[in-house]
Amino acid sequence: MRLNPFNPGSVNVRRGGGGRGGFPGGGGGKIGCGTLVIALIGAVVFGVDPMQTIGMVEGTQTSAPARQVSNESTAEICDDNSYSVESCNALGSLNETWQPLFQQAGISFSQPTLTFLGGGTENTGCGMASSAMGPFYCPADQGIYIDTAFYDQLSRELGAQGDFARYYVMAHEYGHHVQKLTGMADQIRSAQSQQPQAANQLQVRMELQADCYAGVWAGRNRNLIEPGDLEEGLTAASAIGDDTLQRSAGRRVNPESFTHGSSEQRMRWLQIGLRTGDEDQCDTFADLRQ
């Protein structure tokens, strides 16, 4: 995908490593958005104990912890390696794509912060995070967290290669930011607390909607898509389906334990977003309201 170079003034990025220097504040409370699949990916790809991972990101705060001030410029942080350049290019494109849609809808828009993890731990609004957890979005501080080394693991361990596979990961996490800004994330979290028996089902629909939003971004930038991009994205979506991850971990496929959806579901909703370029087609909750 031929994304334009990022404008340093249009992206909000920082380098992680807060666990080594320390931030005030801390987590506590309920498991945040995306924690369960982070634990599963950590177990499959990095050999991390899932319960340890959940403990690291458990909880959300009402306000983000204070952050250390860095003397590095945005350009210096983004230019660290080819993957970080791609991530910043994707972030700039995602901001440029979604902000006008929020303005048209009369909904307040704010950009997420992208934090590059790299060794050590990071104190986030959702608790402690580390590189081993894989990419995630924290709704408490509206931040996307990623160690770009994950992309090598995505390619080697899960067979998802190519720049569009990596863009899909970023666009999916950005989809959670869209859900936070529209109020959907808070609504689902409330519903999960009131209907714990439906918590996993609601989580799956949240994740599938984020997949669809990732497709919407790509669909609205169709002129930048190159041959093979769609296949790369679908391969990535399939590789991180709950059923595929459970099989890879040597476990029995258990749909009741799904938190992100099957490979088929993830590919289907990514395609819906890409084909239509219309966020209104991403209502993964429609049948629950019938």
Score class of each variant (00 low, 15 high):
Leu202Cys: 05
Ile188Gln: 06
Asn221Glu: 08
Cys212Thr: 05
Met184Ser: 11
Leu154Tyr: 06
Glu72Ser: 00
Ala286Glu: 11
Met170Phe: 15
Arg15Trp: 10
Gly106Thr: 01
Pro100Phe: 07
Asp152Thr: 10
Pro112Met: 01
Glu96Thr: 10
Ala198Pro: 02
Leu208Ala: 08
Pro112Cys: 00
Ile77Arg: 06
Leu3Val: 01
Cys88Trp: 07
Gln142Asn: 10
Ala218His: 03
Val169Arg: 12
Ser262His: 09
Met56His: 06
Gly106Arg: 08
Glu86Ala: 07
Met56Gly: 04
Gly17Phe: 11
Tyr151Gln: 08
Ile31Lys: 04
Tyr145Ala: 04
Gln153Phe: 02
Arg222Trp: 02
Met206His: 09
Pro112Ala: 10
Gln187Tyr: 11
Gln194Trp: 03
Leu36Gly: 04
Leu181Tyr: 05
Asn4Val: 01
Thr276Cys: 08
Gln142Phe: 14
Phe285Ile: 06
Leu3Lys: 01
Gly233Thr: 07
Arg222Ile: 04
Thr74Pro: 14
Thr148Cys: 03
Ala43Ile: 01
Thr259His: 09
Gly29Val: 07
Arg252Ser: 13
Asp141His: 00
Pro24Phe: 00
Glu231Thr: 10
Glu72Leu: 00
Gly162Val: 03
Gly250Trp: 09
Ser70Lys: 04
Ile31Ala: 08
Leu117Phe: 08
Arg268Ala: 12
Gln271Arg: 14
Ala249Gly: 12
Ile188Lys: 05
Phe150Tyr: 15
Ser155Cys: 11
Lys30Ile: 10
Leu3Asn: 02
Thr244Trp: 02
Gly219Val: 01
Arg222Gly: 13
Tyr145Trp: 10
Phe285Asp: 08
Gly119Tyr: 09
Gln153Leu: 00
Thr259Met: 00
Val85Trp: 01
Gly32Ser: 15
Gln246Trp: 10
Ser238Ala: 09
Gly32Ala: 11
Gly29Asn: 14
Asp163Asn: 09
Val57Pro: 02
Cys282Gln: 06
His172Phe: 09
Ser93Asp: 07
Glu157Leu: 02
His172Ile: 06
Arg268Gln: 15
Gly29Phe: 06
Cys126Arg: 04
Leu208Cys: 10
Ser155Gln: 14
Met267Gln: 15
Ala218Ser: 05
Phe164Lys: 01
Tyr168Val: 07
Val169Phe: 05
Gly250Cys: 06
Gly277Trp: 10
Val169Asp: 14
Cys33Ser: 10
Thr276Glu: 15
Met170Pro: 01
Met56Arg: 05
Ser263Val: 04
Arg14Val: 09
Phe164Val: 02
Gln209Met: 11
Ala66Phe: 11
Asn254Gly: 00
Cys33Gln: 12
Ala132Asn: 12
Glu58Leu: 01
Ile144Trp: 02
Thr113Pro: 06
Gln103Ile: 03
Val48Thr: 13
Thr60Glu: 13
